[in-house]
Design a protein around this nucleic acid. Structure first.
Length: 579
DNA sequence: GCCGTTTTCGGCCCGACTGTTTTCAGTCG
């Protein structure tokens, strides 16, 4: 019985919250379990690993009781107390909680009275008109349940930031076309630049909220209106994305921006802090002794609380509020600081192991100049090792080197690096022989196969790459592909140590479904003193514009300019390579 | 059940919206 990943534990704790809610247990006990679940889910280390080291208490929200339950879970695979609590509850209620709009109270009532064992059961009972026979439910709720079940099956959980962006732009454009709309801004996870977003949040400043809501409901891509009040509304688009709208008059827009940007945990923490000073926060402003103070801008809102303005990317309740109080917020790296991109794939015929790029070296140079870069690195995949002899590999690298040397001498106003993206093979060796590596200015090494190795092997593999004098950068270090493949497990402290000792740079790969290193590991790496580089991994020149998403990841990891090596001038940057 | 520059006891974020109700409970963000 394996039940130990943070995701599993969070789910277990949430089910306990629901169990207590169904039993009508004290509200704050319910909240405590929700908080603990949130906290475990967002923890940067696996709770199991922390438990191994006796450091479970470093996760906030886990007190004496829950810690002892988790201790039992890790030792025996189950928690007797939890089983006891759930004993008299219908087993089927917990599955129902995944349905939008279905909370613990409803799930309990329906599962118990209709003897449900699954969502499928609920669906057939709804179709048979049995829901409306239950007290507190009517025809409308019966219909809504069917719609919600259908939606649950269709919609994927989260969308890539890069996919949600253009959709949000269309909604914003539409809202701005209504003349009562003064300002419309994307907020929530989109504004915080989270790698994946659950829905699109939008705030509008207007003196006529009703007009805005009415207009919003008529958006041409609307599939279903979930709710529409006088100030807020939610719709589902034809592509399945949910859009939440909130409207406020301009004099209170600052508070609305703050509230709707979140994160939820940031807001809760902020309110708890304010409450101690007798201040009550809401999306309307700050209430002082019952009197509401309004704010046109967010900066004024934070200033009123004696806090420095906090960049949206930092608002995850991970120490930013304390830092803002003490004026210790970092000056985050920005897209303007970036002076080059060295993970770029060309169409040079190197007969690679993976994808070739679409453009010539010259196309890439032109694009880089348009972006005002001081330098670039060509990092095609290395020649495939399975169907070339060692000599053939070296010859291909020689041919490519000749070409790049020509470009270097004909383009004196931009720094050019002759690199390759080298595979870290399953046994920890690099995919090209030393003879080939010697011909390069450096290399980017990454795992591209055997992703399912265990933690020990995978760690050893990366450590081996770090030991090579020919490797400069470890590419997309966790190997995750958002909504496709989980990260492989790695002993990060060990890798961080190896990077420090061997002076290796970790990459923040800006490819839309990689965004790897992930933000939380970026922060850990920076704390460990590691230097990072942000690259786009472009296979086509328009993808070089993805740099902003990589910068967003760095910012979410509290990175300053000093932490990111491709903010260095060419003169300084080139010293990192074998030139 | 958690937590502590007012508290180891007594608090715990705040408000909108909906359906089924005759004043509110449940859910959500």
């Amino acid at each position: 019985m394996k039940f130990t990943s943070n995701k599993d534990i969070a789910k277990l704790l949430r089910s306990m919250s629901a169990a207590y809610a169904a039993k009508g247990e004290d509200y704050f006990k319910i909240i405590a379990y929700d908080k603990a679940a949130d906290s475990v889910q967002h923890a940067t280390s696996e709770a199991k690993d922390l438990w191994d080291d006796g450091k479970l208490d470093t996760i906030p929200g886990l007190g004496k009781n829950i810690q002892s339950y988790l201790d039992e879970l890790f030792r025996t695979g189950k928690v007797k107390h939890f089983q006891e609590i759930k004993k008299n509850l219908p087993e089927g209620m917990f599955e129902l909680l995944d349905i939008p709009g279905m909370g613990p109270k409803s799930a309990y009532k329906l599962a118990k009275l209709l003897k449900l064992r699954s969502i499928e059961d609920l669906k057939s009972k709804a179709k048979a008109g049995k829901i409306r026979t239950i007290e507190g439910f009517g025809e409308k709720s019966e219909k809504d349940i069917l719609v919600s079940i259908a939606r649950l099956k269709k919609r994927s959980n989260r969308y890539l930031l890069t996919d949600a962006f253009p959709v949000a732009q269309r909604v914003l454009e539409y809202l701005r076309s209504q003349k009562e709309c003064e300002r419309a801004e994307p907020l929530g996870s989109l504004r915080r630049m989270v790698a994946t977003v659950g829905d699109i949040d939008i705030a509008v400043s207007s003196n006529n909220p009703q007009k805005i809501i009415d207009h919003f409901k008529k958006f041409r891509e609307t599939q279903k209106i979930l709710e529409a009040g006088s100030r807020t509304s939610s719709i589902v688009l034809k592509n399945g994305m949910q859009v939440d709208l909130m409207v406020q008059p301009p004099e209170a827009f600052g508070a609305l921006l703050q509230h709707f940007t979140g994160s939820k945990n940031h807001n809760i923490h902020l309110r708890e802090t304010a409450l101690k000073k007798g201040l009550s926060l809401s999306e309307y402003g700050i209430r002082v002794k019952g009197k509401l103070q309004k704010f046109r801008t967010e900066a004024e809102f934070y200033k009123f609380l004696n806090l420095d303005w906090i960049e949206p990317e930092l608002r995850e309740d991970s120490g930013e509020i304390e830092a803002a109080i003490n004026h210790k917020l970092p000056k985050l790296v920005s897209i303007e600081d970036i002076k080059g991109d060295i993970h770029l794939h060309s169409n040079f015929p190197i007969e690679p192991s993976h994808d070739l790029g679409a453009n010539t070296f010259k196309d890439i140079i032109t694009k880089a100049k348009n972006l005002n870069y001081e330098y670039i690195g060509f990092s095609d995949h290395s020649p495939s090792y399975s169907n070339h002899t060692k000599k053939q590999v070296v010859d291909l690298i020689k041919k490519r080197k000749e070409k790049i040397e020509q470009l270097k001498s004909s383009h004196k106003n931009i720094g050019i690096l002759n690199l390759l993206e080298v595979d870290i093979l399953a046994n920890g060796e690099l995919s090209i022989p030393e003879e080939g590596l010697k011909l390069l200015d450096g290399s980017i090494a990454g795992v591209h196969s055997s992703h399912h190795q265990d933690k020990r092997k995978m760690t050893q593999r990366i450590l081996n790459a770090c030991k090579s004098t020919y490797v400069n950068v470890v590419a997309h270090p966790t190997g995750r592909l958002l909504s496709e493949r989980e990260s492989y497990e790695v002993d990060w402290p060990a890798v961080f140590d190896a990077c420090i000792i061997n002076k290796k740079i970790l990459e923040i790969n800006a490819w839309p479904n990689r965004l790897d290193l992930p933000d939380v590991l970026v922060r850990d790496a920076i704390r460990a003193g590691i230097k990072l580089i942000i690259n786009t991994d472009s296979h086509e020149i328009s993808q070089m514009d993805n740099m902003r998403f990589g910068v967003a990841v760095a910012r979410r990891g509290w990175a300053t300019k000093d932490d990111i090596v491709n903010t260095l001038s060419w003169v300084e940057f080139r010293k990192l390579f074998r030139l």
